[in-house]
Design a protein around this nucleic acid. Structure first.
Length: 542
DNA sequence: GTAGCCGCTCCCAGATTGGA
DNA sequence: TCCAATCTGGGAGCGGCTAC
């Protein structure tokens, strides 16, 4: 035995506290991923008084079936003050936390080597259980408590960074989804009147001429908002009513453009925090200087009194709001809405309805013969439903193909950003390829005809949600092509898809980059775990 | 009351079959 | 040849029975 290695049994003790008074209702199960999970047990008619209580920083483990699972399920309770678990699980705690840090112990349990040791010692029955005494005899290096805290802190930095990246990605994903809904479900998309020509720099990040010309063709729409069209020379002082009833004052030489910028949170700090509702007043001036002078005046006490008086004269804010030609924004109804029989609702003029398969092109996958080793373990990622994760992107796959394997199956090599939808087993999960990949027949691959994959991905997310929502009472055991064929979607004009795709591409670039970063962080996390075996006593380190 | 063992249910995915 | 349906087997997480 190395000098700083000690049996686990020297540091832990069993705890057997039952839920006799039924005070605790948080019921958890134990997963082989070494986490507590919501219990999946059918507890109808079960006597919950027999269930064991596990408290914060206590552990629960399963010593049954260790050989079968090649893992020992063990977890430390962190997210709850207390919970109950099945009486089948031993609950234990660290005797003296000044000698052994519970998180350090959990790190030791997280090592692959620990599971290998547990599997090796598991005996009895076809599934192989681990003797409790054997578990207690397993040894771990126990450096000073200061050193343990240092190791735990280093490990937590990596773990927290991974968590932070996951949270940031979740925010970006939510923002992309909200923007999609805003444009293509609520129809609050950027829209300009037919005689509109922007003056000055439009903050839309539109750089290529093709897109500009598409924007110019945008609308044969008649604007109901009634703002004056700019000639490029005239300057305006304007008042924007915001959703908190505050009034923003500014100047511009293009009211439509400026309102759009405010509306899309690209205008001013105030309108970023308080969403603009409507331009309620404007005045025209021949020069910028004259407009700026009037703006300054409106921002004084005199100006505020003048504005209040005008609002009173108009009958008050409520009357002004009720009289808005557009309920939420002057941009919203800039486009003419037309009734669509197929969809049984109004959609913007110029948009059309079509099958999901018109909006996105579909292809299938395939699996080469698994008995042929020449087909497997190459450099080509092979996506299956198992590779779906919580994030948008899938970067790595559990299985890989060789060139020969790819050539001998129905799967193609799908390019980066191809959308994968799982169709069997796990039904309706969506991933986007972070790199070139092949795919098995449990999934479908989708590409947007104009290669606007980020727009396509958002469309797929919403459509699959709808498909699953429509299946009330029925359960999808599988998704087949006719499900996609029969699903109607609204197809917006190309310029708008392109504009949207460009707007959210930075989100996707950032999400993908963080996914790659997390892969490296996971490797570092595993490295820290494997280094634990080399932790030496301070004396030995000298 | 407890330890150990076996089996149930749900879920998942690869392979095979059969029809268009 | 492609695609959908079906068959088959394994993983996961318990529940419950039996012997002691």
């Amino acid at each position: 035995m190395r000098s700083n290695y000690r049996p686990i049994g020297d540091y832990i003790r069993l705890v057997d506290e039952r839920n006799k008074e039924l005070k605790i209702t948080t019921l958890l199960g134990l997963s082989i991923t070494k986490e507590f999970i919501p219990s999946v047990a059918n507890t109808v008619g079960t006597n919950m008084r027999n269930y064991k209580i596990v408290r914060k920083n206590q552990f629960a483990c399963s010593i049954m079936q260790v050989r079968r699972d090649k893992k020992m399920p063990v977890a430390i309770l962190k997210d709850f003050k207390e919970a109950i678990i099945s009486q089948a699980y031993p609950v234990f705690e660290v005797i003296d936390e000044d000698l052994l840090h519970p998180d350090y112990l959990m790190m030791w349990f997280s090592r692959e080597e620990f599971d290998r040791q547990a599997t090796f010692h598991a005996v009895g029955g076809v599934r192989g259980s681990l003797e409790w005494e054997d578990f207690l005899s397993f040894e771990l290096p126990v450096p000073s408590i200061e050193k343990q805290r240092e190791i735990v802190a280093e490990y937590n930095v990596v773990k927290n960074r991974i968590k932070l990246n996951e949270q940031l990605n979740q925010k970006l994903e939510e923002t992309a989804q909200a923007l999609y809904k805003h444009w293509f479900v609520d129809f609050e998309f950027p829209c300009l009147p037919s005689d509109y020509r922007p003056h000055g720099q439009v903050n839309l990040k539109i750089s290529d001429n093709e897109l500009k010309s598409e924007i110019a063709q945008v609308c044969n729409y008649k604007r109901t908002g009634g703002l004056p069209i700019s000639d490029g020379r005239t300057w305006f002082v304007y008042l924007i009513l915001c959703d908190d009833d505050s009034i923003y004052k500014g100047i511009t030489n293009d009211l439509y453009r400026r309102f759009y910028e405010h509306y899309t949170a690209q205008g001013a700090k105030h309108t970023k925090q308080h969403k603009p509702v409507k331009v309620i007043h404007w005045e025209q001036f021949d020069t910028k200087e004259a407009a700026a002078k009037r703006e300054k005046e409106l921002k004084t006490g005199y100006g505020r009194t003048w504005i209040d008086r005008q609002i009173k004269k108009a009958g008050g804010l409520e009357i002004i709001k009720a009289g808005l030609p557009a309920p939420k924004t002057q941009l919203r109804t800039a486009g003419k809405m037309v009734y669509n029989e197929e969809l049984d609702k109004e959609i913007p003029e110029g948009w059309k309805d079509g099958s999901f398969l018109e909006a996105l092109e579909i292809s299938g996958g395939g699996t080469p013969r698994t008995q042929n080793p020449d087909y497997w373990n190459g450099n080509i990622p092979f996506f299956t439903p198992k590779d779906v994760n919580d994030s948008y992107y899938v970067i790595e796959s559990e299985k890989t193909l060789t060139e020969e394997g790819l050539n001998n199956c129905s799967s193609k090599l799908y390019s980066k950003n191809t959308i994968f939808i799982t169709a069997r087993g796990t039904v309706g999960e969506i991933s986007i390829a972070g790199t070139e990949m092949s795919m098995n027949q449990s999934c479908y691959a989708f590409t947007e005809p104009d290669c606007l994959q980020f727009y396509g991905h958002q469309l797929a997310i919403l459509t699959i949600k709808e498909l699953i929502g429509e299946a009330v009472g029925a359960v999808f055991s599988a998704l087949v092509t006719k499900d996609f064929q029969g699903k109607s979607v609204i197809i917006p004009p190309k310029y708008l898809k392109k504009l949207f795709n460009r707007k959210i591409e930075q989100f996707y670039f950032s999400i993908r980059s963080k996914e790659f970063q997390n892969i490296q962080l996971y490797k570092l996390k595993n490295l820290l775990l494997s280094r634990m075996a080399n932790v030496k006593k301070e004396k030995e380190m000298v």
